[in-house]
Design a protein around this nucleic acid. Structure first.
Length: 290
DNA sequence: ACTATTTGACCAGA
DNA sequence: TCTGGTCAAATAGT
Protein backbone atom coordinates (compact mmCIF):
# COMPACT_ATOMS: atom_id res chain seq x y z
CA UNK A 1 0.00 0.00 0.00
CA UNK A 2 2.68 2.40 1.09
CA UNK A 3 4.88 1.18 -1.74
CA UNK A 4 2.06 1.63 -4.21
CA UNK A 5 1.67 5.20 -3.13
CA UNK A 6 5.37 5.96 -3.29
CA UNK A 7 5.50 4.42 -6.75
CA UNK A 8 2.59 6.57 -7.81
CA UNK A 9 4.19 9.62 -6.32
CA UNK A 10 7.44 8.87 -8.07
CA UNK A 11 5.61 8.47 -11.35
CA UNK A 12 3.80 11.75 -10.85
CA UNK A 13 7.06 13.41 -10.02
CA UNK A 14 8.70 12.03 -13.14
CA UNK A 15 5.79 13.10 -15.30
CA UNK A 16 5.87 16.60 -13.87
CA UNK A 17 9.62 16.84 -14.31
CA UNK A 18 9.28 15.80 -17.92
CA UNK A 19 6.61 18.40 -18.44
CA UNK A 20 8.82 21.02 -16.88
CA UNK A 21 11.74 20.00 -19.08
CA UNK A 22 9.60 20.24 -22.16
CA UNK A 23 8.40 23.69 -21.20
CA UNK A 24 12.02 24.66 -20.66
CA UNK A 25 12.92 23.39 -24.12
CA UNK A 26 10.08 25.35 -25.61
CA UNK A 27 11.18 28.44 -23.77
CA UNK A 28 14.68 27.78 -25.04
CA UNK A 29 13.43 27.53 -28.58
CA UNK A 30 11.62 30.82 -28.17
CA UNK A 31 14.70 32.39 -26.69
CA UNK A 32 16.87 31.28 -29.56
CA UNK A 33 14.54 32.98 -31.96
CA UNK A 34 13.77 29.84 -33.93
CA UNK A 35 10.10 30.29 -33.50
CA UNK A 36 10.60 33.96 -33.86
CA UNK A 37 12.03 33.48 -37.32
CA UNK A 38 9.08 31.44 -38.38
CA UNK A 39 6.64 33.92 -37.02
CA UNK A 40 8.42 36.86 -38.55
CA UNK A 41 7.93 35.19 -41.88
CA UNK A 42 4.26 35.38 -41.20
CA UNK A 43 4.52 38.92 -39.96
CA UNK A 44 2.87 38.14 -36.70
CA UNK A 45 5.74 37.86 -34.27
CA UNK A 46 5.08 41.10 -32.44
CA UNK A 47 1.56 40.20 -31.39
CA UNK A 48 2.04 36.47 -30.80
CA UNK A 49 5.44 36.02 -29.21
CA UNK A 50 4.82 37.74 -25.88
CA UNK A 51 1.63 35.77 -25.52
CA UNK A 52 3.28 32.42 -26.32
CA UNK A 53 6.26 33.16 -24.10
CA UNK A 54 3.99 34.17 -21.26
CA UNK A 55 2.01 30.96 -21.75
CA UNK A 56 5.15 28.83 -21.62
CA UNK A 57 6.32 30.60 -18.47
CA UNK A 58 2.97 29.92 -16.84
CA UNK A 59 3.16 26.25 -17.79
CA UNK A 60 6.68 26.09 -16.38
CA UNK A 61 5.56 27.80 -13.21
CA UNK A 62 2.69 25.38 -12.83
CA UNK A 63 4.95 22.35 -13.16
CA UNK A 64 7.42 23.76 -10.65
CA UNK A 65 4.71 24.59 -8.12
CA UNK A 66 3.13 21.17 -8.40
CA UNK A 67 6.51 19.55 -7.88
CA UNK A 68 7.06 21.68 -4.81
CA UNK A 69 3.67 20.73 -3.44
CA UNK A 70 4.34 17.10 -4.10
CA UNK A 71 7.67 17.16 -2.34
CA UNK A 72 6.44 19.13 0.64
CA UNK A 73 4.05 16.29 1.52
CA UNK A 74 1.01 18.36 0.70
CA UNK A 75 -0.37 15.23 -0.86
CA UNK A 76 -0.56 12.34 1.51
CA UNK A 77 -1.68 8.77 0.98
CA UNK A 78 -4.95 9.51 2.75
CA UNK A 79 -5.53 12.49 0.52
CA UNK A 80 -4.56 10.73 -2.63
CA UNK A 81 -7.37 8.23 -2.35
CA UNK A 82 -9.87 11.01 -2.74
CA UNK A 83 -7.90 13.07 -5.22
CA UNK A 84 -7.23 10.71 -8.08
CA UNK A 85 -7.44 11.66 -11.69
CA UNK A 86 -10.94 11.14 -13.11
CA UNK A 87 -9.69 8.74 -15.76
CA UNK A 88 -7.82 6.61 -13.21
CA UNK A 89 -10.77 6.72 -10.87
CA UNK A 90 -13.23 5.46 -13.46
CA UNK A 91 -10.84 2.71 -14.46
CA UNK A 92 -10.37 1.79 -10.82
CA UNK A 93 -14.13 1.68 -10.30
CA UNK A 94 -14.63 -0.51 -13.35
CA UNK A 95 -11.98 -2.90 -12.13
CA UNK A 96 -13.42 -2.95 -8.64
CA UNK A 97 -16.90 -3.68 -9.91
CA UNK A 98 -15.56 -6.54 -11.98
CA UNK A 99 -13.39 -7.79 -9.14
CA UNK A 100 -10.33 -7.77 -11.35
CA UNK A 101 -8.12 -5.42 -9.38
CA UNK A 102 -7.55 -8.13 -6.83
CA UNK A 103 -3.87 -8.89 -6.56
CA UNK A 104 -4.63 -12.59 -6.43
CA UNK A 105 -6.10 -12.43 -9.90
CA UNK A 106 -3.75 -13.10 -12.73
CA UNK A 107 -5.05 -10.40 -15.03
CA UNK A 108 -4.95 -6.74 -14.35
CA UNK A 109 -7.38 -4.20 -15.65
CA UNK A 110 -6.10 -2.26 -18.58
CA UNK A 111 -7.31 0.38 -20.94
CA UNK A 112 -7.13 -0.45 -24.61
CA UNK A 113 -5.68 2.21 -26.80
CA UNK A 114 -8.26 4.33 -28.51
CA UNK A 115 -5.80 6.66 -30.18
CA UNK A 116 -5.53 6.89 -33.93
CA UNK A 117 -2.33 5.81 -35.64
CA UNK A 118 0.19 8.60 -35.71
CA UNK A 119 1.68 7.50 -38.96
CA UNK A 120 2.18 4.49 -41.09
CA UNK A 121 4.99 3.29 -43.28
CA UNK A 122 5.33 0.55 -45.84
CA UNK A 123 8.77 -0.80 -46.45
CA UNK A 124 10.32 -3.70 -48.26
CA UNK A 125 12.64 -4.24 -45.33
CA UNK A 126 12.36 -4.09 -41.58
CA UNK A 127 13.98 -0.80 -40.85
CA UNK A 128 15.67 0.42 -37.70
CA UNK A 129 13.98 3.61 -36.56
CA UNK A 130 16.48 4.56 -33.90
CA UNK A 131 14.38 3.70 -30.87
CA UNK A 132 14.39 0.70 -28.58
CA UNK A 133 11.25 -1.39 -28.89
CA UNK A 134 10.07 -4.28 -26.83
CA UNK A 135 7.80 -6.85 -28.40
CA UNK A 136 4.83 -7.66 -26.22
CA UNK A 137 2.72 -9.76 -28.48
CA UNK A 138 1.93 -11.04 -31.89
CA UNK A 139 -1.31 -12.04 -33.48
CA UNK A 140 -2.70 -13.57 -36.58
CA UNK A 141 -5.36 -11.22 -37.84
CA UNK A 142 -8.34 -11.86 -40.03
CA UNK A 143 -7.73 -11.65 -43.77
CA UNK A 144 -4.00 -11.42 -43.16
CA UNK A 145 -1.51 -13.99 -44.34
CA UNK A 146 1.12 -13.06 -41.80
CA UNK A 147 1.43 -12.36 -38.10
CA UNK A 148 1.13 -8.86 -36.76
CA UNK A 149 3.71 -7.97 -34.13
CA UNK A 150 3.09 -5.53 -31.33
CA UNK A 151 5.88 -3.41 -29.91
CA UNK A 152 6.07 -0.77 -27.24
CA UNK A 153 8.88 1.51 -26.22
CA UNK A 154 11.45 -0.22 -24.03
CA UNK A 155 11.22 2.76 -21.69
CA UNK A 156 7.46 2.45 -21.25
CA UNK A 157 7.77 1.73 -17.54
CA UNK A 158 10.83 3.65 -16.40
CA UNK A 159 10.20 6.74 -18.51
CA UNK A 160 6.49 6.23 -19.09
CA UNK A 161 6.95 6.51 -22.81
CA UNK A 162 3.70 5.72 -24.57
CA UNK A 163 5.03 5.10 -28.08
CA UNK A 164 3.91 1.84 -29.68
CA UNK A 165 4.13 0.30 -33.07
CA UNK A 166 2.71 -2.60 -35.00
CA UNK A 167 4.60 -4.38 -37.72
CA UNK A 168 2.81 -6.54 -40.21
CA UNK A 169 4.09 -8.28 -43.27
CA UNK A 170 1.56 -7.48 -45.94
CA UNK A 171 3.13 -8.99 -49.01
CA UNK A 172 5.41 -11.88 -49.76
CA UNK A 173 6.98 -11.26 -53.12
CA UNK A 174 8.53 -8.78 -52.96
CA UNK A 175 8.38 -8.71 -49.16
CA UNK A 176 6.54 -5.70 -47.86
CA UNK A 177 6.10 -4.69 -44.22
CA UNK A 178 3.68 -2.16 -42.84
CA UNK A 179 4.73 -0.38 -39.67
CA UNK A 180 2.06 1.59 -37.87
CA UNK A 181 3.09 3.90 -35.09
CA UNK A 182 0.87 4.98 -32.21
CA UNK A 183 1.64 7.83 -29.88
CA UNK A 184 4.87 9.72 -29.51
CA UNK A 185 8.17 8.97 -27.87
CA UNK A 186 8.42 10.91 -24.65
CA UNK A 187 11.46 8.94 -23.57
CA UNK A 188 14.88 10.49 -23.79
CA UNK A 189 16.75 7.45 -24.85
CA UNK A 190 16.91 6.84 -28.58
CA UNK A 191 19.02 3.75 -29.17
CA UNK A 192 20.67 5.21 -32.16
CA UNK A 193 20.07 8.94 -32.52
CA UNK A 194 21.85 8.97 -35.86
CA UNK A 195 19.07 7.06 -37.52
CA UNK A 196 16.00 8.52 -35.91
CA UNK A 197 13.32 8.20 -38.54
CA UNK A 198 12.49 11.19 -40.64
CA UNK A 199 9.20 9.86 -41.89
CA UNK A 200 8.16 12.80 -43.98
CA UNK A 201 11.20 13.26 -46.02
CA UNK A 202 10.25 13.24 -49.72
CA UNK A 203 12.60 10.34 -50.23
CA UNK A 204 10.55 8.00 -48.11
CA UNK A 205 7.47 6.09 -49.03
CA UNK A 206 5.76 6.94 -45.78
CA UNK A 207 2.04 6.99 -45.87
CA UNK A 208 0.79 9.65 -43.58
CA UNK A 209 -2.55 9.09 -41.97
CA UNK A 210 -4.79 12.01 -41.43
CA UNK A 211 -7.32 11.83 -38.63
CA UNK A 212 -9.46 14.46 -37.08
CA UNK A 213 -8.24 13.74 -33.62
CA UNK A 214 -4.59 13.76 -34.51
CA UNK A 215 -4.04 17.43 -34.95
CA UNK A 216 -1.97 18.40 -37.94
CA UNK A 217 -0.75 14.90 -38.29
CA UNK A 218 0.33 15.62 -41.80
CA UNK A 219 3.27 17.42 -40.24
CA UNK A 220 3.79 15.34 -37.19
CA UNK A 221 6.79 13.26 -36.48
CA UNK A 222 6.29 10.75 -33.72
CA UNK A 223 9.94 10.90 -32.83
CA UNK A 224 11.22 14.15 -31.47
CA UNK A 225 14.46 15.37 -32.85
CA UNK A 226 17.41 13.71 -31.17
CA UNK A 227 19.09 17.08 -31.19
CA UNK A 228 16.65 18.17 -28.54
CA UNK A 229 16.77 15.04 -26.47
CA UNK A 230 19.43 13.93 -24.09
CA UNK A 231 21.10 10.92 -25.58
CA UNK A 232 21.86 7.61 -23.95
CA UNK A 233 23.74 5.22 -26.20
CA UNK A 234 22.83 1.60 -25.94
CA UNK A 235 23.60 -1.47 -28.01
CA UNK A 236 21.65 -1.76 -31.23
CA UNK A 237 18.64 -4.00 -31.24
CA UNK A 238 17.86 -6.18 -34.18
CA UNK A 239 14.32 -6.74 -35.31
CA UNK A 240 13.58 -10.16 -36.72
CA UNK A 241 10.80 -10.90 -39.10
CA UNK A 242 8.34 -13.73 -38.62
CA UNK A 243 10.68 -16.20 -40.22
CA UNK A 244 13.59 -15.24 -38.08
CA UNK A 245 15.61 -13.72 -40.85
CA UNK A 246 17.55 -10.68 -39.83
CA UNK A 247 16.63 -7.84 -42.01
CA UNK A 248 18.20 -4.69 -40.87
CA UNK A 249 19.70 -1.65 -42.44
CA UNK A 250 22.99 -0.27 -41.38
CA UNK A 251 23.04 3.20 -39.92
CA UNK A 252 24.62 4.43 -43.12
CA UNK A 253 21.91 2.92 -45.28
CA UNK A 254 19.29 4.50 -43.09
CA UNK A 255 20.97 7.84 -43.37
CA UNK A 256 20.87 7.52 -47.10
CA UNK A 257 17.23 6.57 -47.04
CA UNK A 258 16.11 9.27 -44.70
CA UNK A 259 17.46 12.68 -45.51
CA UNK A 260 17.97 14.24 -42.16
CA UNK A 261 16.38 17.61 -42.02
CA UNK A 262 17.54 19.63 -39.05
CA UNK A 263 15.83 22.83 -40.02
CA UNK A 264 13.45 24.00 -37.38
CA UNK A 265 9.81 23.23 -37.70
CA UNK A 266 7.59 24.32 -34.83
CA UNK A 267 4.98 21.69 -35.45
CA UNK A 268 7.57 18.92 -35.34
CA UNK A 269 9.12 20.24 -32.19
CA UNK A 270 5.70 20.49 -30.65
CA UNK A 271 5.73 16.72 -30.59
CA UNK A 272 8.12 17.00 -27.68
CA UNK A 273 5.01 17.69 -25.71
CA UNK A 274 2.58 15.04 -24.67
CA UNK A 275 -0.44 14.73 -26.93
CA UNK A 276 -2.58 16.85 -24.66
CA UNK A 277 0.13 19.44 -24.30
CA UNK A 278 0.80 19.56 -27.99
CA UNK A 279 -2.92 19.95 -28.62
CA UNK A 280 -2.90 22.99 -26.39
CA UNK A 281 0.21 24.26 -28.03
CA UNK A 282 -1.17 23.83 -31.50
CA UNK A 283 -4.45 25.40 -30.49
CA UNK A 284 -2.53 28.53 -29.66
CA UNK A 285 -1.17 28.57 -33.19
CA UNK A 286 -4.54 27.79 -34.66
CA UNK A 287 -5.98 30.76 -32.82
CA UNK A 288 -3.56 32.93 -34.67
CA UNK A 289 -4.26 31.33 -37.97
CA UNK A 290 -1.08 29.31 -38.55
C1' DA B 1 20.62 -13.83 -12.61
C1' DC B 2 18.71 -10.81 -15.51
C1' DT B 3 16.37 -9.35 -19.70
C1' DA B 4 13.80 -10.14 -23.92
C1' DT B 5 10.61 -12.91 -26.54
C1' DT B 6 6.96 -16.25 -27.18
C1' DT B 7 2.49 -17.66 -26.60
C1' DG B 8 -2.07 -18.74 -24.88
C1' DA B 9 -5.57 -16.60 -22.40
C1' DC B 10 -8.00 -12.64 -21.06
C1' DC B 11 -10.30 -8.44 -22.06
C1' DA B 12 -12.44 -4.20 -24.41
C1' DG B 13 -14.80 -2.39 -27.99
C1' DA B 14 -17.37 -2.69 -32.22
C1' DT C 1 -20.23 -12.55 -30.43
C1' DC C 2 -16.13 -11.70 -32.79
C1' DT C 3 -11.79 -9.62 -33.45
C1' DG C 4 -7.77 -7.43 -32.24
C1' DG C 5 -4.96 -5.59 -28.39
C1' DT C 6 -2.73 -6.64 -24.06
C1' DC C 7 -1.19 -9.30 -20.16
C1' DA C 8 1.84 -12.26 -17.87
C1' DA C 9 3.78 -17.03 -17.19
C1' DA C 10 6.95 -19.78 -19.49
C1' DT C 11 10.86 -20.03 -22.12
C1' DA C 12 15.07 -18.61 -24.45
C1' DG C 13 19.10 -15.93 -24.73
C1' DT C 14 23.08 -13.52 -22.76
Amino acid sequence: METQFSNGKKAMEEELMRGRDMANQLLDALGHGKLNTHLQDEGRSKSVLPFVEDLVRKVLCSFTNTLLLLNSNEITPSLSSSTTFPEMESLHETCKSRNILNTNNRRRCYKRKSIAPTWEKDSSILIEDGYAWRKYGQKMTLHAKYLRSYYRCTYKTDQRCSAMKQVQRIQDDPPLYRTTYYGHHTCRSPVNPEIIMEPFSPSTSSTLLSFDNSLHSKQENPFPSPLLASIKQEPQKVIHDEHGAQNQLSALENLLLYDYDISFDYSRNATLLSSAESDQFENVFEQFGF
